[in-house]
């Protein structure tokens, strides 16, 4: 069974890859990608089911914080039911989105700002080396250079240093990192195509 799944996965991978280089494979590539999209849609349902199973298990074991798991299941099922009955475009469903989900995400964004500031303050205590100092000094220069002040840009920092850091140093560094990530993705993909990595199971 594992050999068959590996053969299917490798064959599908090669066909989809071939579709980018040869027009003869484009139709087959599109068909396979459409199948993949349907499977991803089904995976979302399985993911929701997995979420319910994990939290139901927490409730049945009376684990710490299980009250939140109960809330999650109740509101998940209620939203699903109302969504199916009323439709996603109904005003009540829009209210759920605009009145709960968006503010909660905005609140998390606010918490994130504080967390990042706290992390920056603690950076030198955690790792006191040259790179940490460079990181903090660069961050400070960018913040001062970007800040909107009553008298306009901070002279020299806002007009010269910040553009030079962002457009020369940061851009060059970012491209270097992204090239490294791309090469890593390439070799990882090749390992999957060769069947050396089998994220779809098998030993």
């Amino acid at each position: 069974m594992r050999v068959i799944t590996a053969i299917i996965a490798i064959a599908v991978g090669i066909i989809i890859l071939a579709g980018y280089f040869s027009p003869a494979f484009v139709d087959l590539q599109t068909l396979l990608l459409n199948w993949a999209l349907i499977l991803v849609g089904m995976a979302a349902l399985v993911g929701v089911f997995n979420l319910i199973m994990v939290h139901a298990d927490k409730i049945s074991r009376r684990e710490k914080g299980s009250i939140y798991s109960a809330f999650l299941i109740i509101f998940l099922v209620a939203t699903l039911l109302f969504g199916m009955i009323l439709g996603p475009g109904h005003s009540a469903m829009r209210l759920v989105l605009d009145g709960i989900i968006v503010p909660v995400e905005a609140a998390l964004m606010g918490v994130l700002t504080v967390s990042l500031l706290y992390a920056a303050i603690r950076l030198l205590r955690r790792r006191a080396d040259v790179m940490s100092i460079v990181f903090l000094v660069t961050a400070a220069l960018i913040i001062f250079g970007s800040a909107t002040l009553p008298f306009g840009d901070v002279p020299f920092i806002g007009t010269l240093i910040r553009p030079w850091i962002t457009q020369v140093l940061a851009l060059g560094g970012a491209r270097g990192i992204l090239i490294g990530v791309a090469l890593g993705s390439l070799t990882t993909g090749l390992r999957v195509l060769f069947g050396a990595d089998r994220p779809y199971g098998g030993q």
Partner: peptide
Amino acid sequence: PSLGLLAQDTLQA
């Protein structure tokens, strides 16, 4: 969700 499914399969393997 698709990554979650693969994580389960990978753990089992």
